[in-house]
């Protein structure tokens, strides 16, 4: 399997680590609701088909990516950057900036 890292381009699976379900919602820290925290930590759906998941380009740019992957075929539908750089979907063209 290859992932098209928005920063580094197509790279092989061995450069990435799987970091779990990206559809999980996180309570705010002031929430003391044990139920919603256990959902966050333990409850996982196991969909057959398209799934959104976190991958980290750990042996590359170290960015966390949100990957839409079909769990039945391993087809990668989309790779996006997670976090503050969300929305960047194509490699940055440094030349274009000049």
């Amino acid at each position: 399997m290859y992932l098209n890292c928005p920063f580094c381009g197509h790279r092989h699976l061995e450069e990435f680590t799987y970091e779990g379900d990206a559809t999980i919602s996180w309570p705010t820290l002031d929430s003391q609701d044990i139920g919603s925290w256990t959902d966050t930590v333990y409850q996982r759906r196991n969909p057959a088909g398209p799934h959104r998941e976190y991958w980290q380009h750990v042996h590359g740019c170290r960015q966390f990516l949100i990957v839409e992957r079909d769990t039945t075929t391993h087809s990668i539908h989309k790779v996006e950057v997670a976090g503050p750089w969300a929305g960047e979907t194509a490699p940055r063209n440094t030349e274009a900036k000049q």
Partner: peptide, 16 residues
């Protein structure tokens, strides 16, 4: 390191 990076990317992206 991974844990902290994950929190900043996935849970609290608003933190600078």
């Amino acid at each position: 390191m991974k844990h902290l990076e994950f929190l900043l990317a996935a849970v609290w992206p608003e933190l600078k």
